[in-house]
Design a protein around this nucleic acid. Sequence first.
DNA 1: GGTTTTTATGAAATGCATTTCAATACAAAG
DNA 2: CTTTGTATTGAAATGCATTTCATAAAAACC
Lengths: 335, 335
Amino acid sequence: MPRTTRPTMDDVARIAKVSKPTVSRVLSGSPLVSADTRERVLAVAREQGYALNRHAQKLRRERANAIAVVLDFGSHRQGAIGDPFIFELLAGISEALSVRDLDLLLSPSGLDTIDGFVDLYQSRGADGFIVLGQGARDALLQKVARKDIPMVVWGAVNEASAYCAVGSDNSLGGRLAGERFLLHDRRRWLFVGSRQHEEIRLRFEGLQEAARKNSDVEIDVLSIESMAFSAIHDQANAYLKTCTVRPDAVFAFSDTAAMAVIGAFSKEGHLTPRDYSLVGYNDIPPAAHFTPSITTIAQQTGVAGALLVEKLMQALDGSRPRSAMLPTQLVTRQT
Amino acid sequence: MPRTTRPTMDDVARIAKVSKPTVSRVLSGSPLVSADTRERVLAVAREQGYALNRHAQKLRRERANAIAVVLDFGSHRQGAIGDPFIFELLAGISEALSVRDLDLLLSPSGLDTIDGFVDLYQSRGADGFIVLGQGARDALLQKVARKDIPMVVWGAVNEASAYCAVGSDNSLGGRLAGERFLLHDRRRWLFVGSRQHEEIRLRFEGLQEAARKNSDVEIDVLSIESMAFSAIHDQANAYLKTCTVRPDAVFAFSDTAAMAVIGAFSKEGHLTPRDYSLVGYNDIPPAAHFTPSITTIAQQTGVAGALLVEKLMQALDGSRPRSAMLPTQLVTRQT
DNA sequence: GGTTTTTATGAAATGCATTTCAATACAAAG
DNA sequence: CTTTGTATTGAAATGCATTTCATAAAAACC
């Protein structure tokens, strides 16, 4: 007759004729057990189909062994403007956590208020947080950081900030785009993106900085309201129809947005690279194969996830990791 | 002097002058407490900054309140062929779980063997599993299902399968593509994708089925080895250079792959829609705005996530949910 | 007024592993 | 042969909330 209830550590101990602590030691790889005891215990555990109860373990150890990754799906759905880019970031994080044997809790609910963060943290639901894109909630994150909750953020790097951020040099990205426009003698620039997002605002600032090198340059802004692909497309289309002077340079906050702009503008006969230069952001794979291929700003996605996790580990160890800025690079293509 | 150790339920009980069970009842919203006791307890809990220990709760309740979502990042990195599509699926799942107050454990490690699944399940790390894309590991999943572990899979729907699957009608998708090719009098078809993946194999079968309606049709297969965007691009390019007869119709397993093919072929002067018809898969947002815009098969991403979760809930309740097939649709565009 | 029901609350048992501290056994040293 | 050190192992305390069962109090019924 098969056992009706799962074996516990006590059962294993009894059958292997050792004590519970010994079983515990074996299972957590402690060197304090003799080789044959270890083997005996492992054999019994295996033959009994024993699996240790993670919650008992976490309760006792007083840590969750899990990291919450916060991600604003809202802005990534229906149009996925979030790009393969965020996905790669997530993949990198997942891998880095995996290596450290930490669970990844994806976008737990309730993290739109401090209380949500504090509660999840205090209730030991997560040992730390990785926030992807501070978006428009910088204020919230500042408060979280002040509560001494381990957290790192992907996004705009700001030395004055209370939290540790990792992100690419957005302002440099903007500058690179602007310099390219200058090189091509473009004077009427259009910035596409929402300045509510800190990181995107920095890109805009970089662009402005480049613009100052030539007093003729004028920058207009198309402030994106929805992240949905088709919404951007429509907004861009409407813009072109109503603007007094058509832009001869466009800097879009993402490659996907750039694609939307290309489509919208071409419907009105405004073509790149003929009529305007275009620079996107992120260098997602299709950007290279789009027609025309898209000039863009590449970020170092590969290392980003690992770096975020590394910084968070430092925070877990009680130290205060420094923010880090990853280099960005202009990838010159047709547009 | 501030308390050095977190308050426990006992503390709250003592301060509120009630017993521990009463606090527990209040916190879990039981109707078995009088209104003023409830209020008093909540007030004390708030003022003491009490947060219940989730692990103690999970230990006692004997459930994790968490679902593991398994996702093969490997095939989605460096080129993200996984598409915005998988991301949308994930968003849908995240939301549906959130509503039910379940945590989402993203791709926990070790789930590449049965033991991994069994262990995570038995150790109560997760109450159930959602697997995104059975890929090449159908055999593993069959075994998991036979262990009576609650699981639903996004992918190929096969009635003979031991597990519950939700997916779109892949074979219909293939048929629709084939019919379009027939309509345009295309005879030399090329299928781009790996038949190791069950879902993709079904699309191929659908295509074959359509082909049987006309005896002149010949189908060649470009078997994709890597999911990376540039790898597909290179493979497609190499194919075109070495094939004896150039294809006049291409059915690609994803829109992203379709983009890669368009790029690769156009380099050799082989253009769509002039020289060949092309049908992609997934209808990701950029597909509509690519130049040329891509004809594709649309899946019902919106409901997929919610449906997966719903089926899994049934499985958790002990019933055996039926597999479900979502309709697919041809979206006709330029290619 | 006495009895049955309902409502509200508490005592104690339970879920399970880890860690500290003490004890034993055995080997090395003097 | 005693002393000291080392390697193994175990008893008991600990981490914290939920649930069952029992009890007390209040309300409803005859």
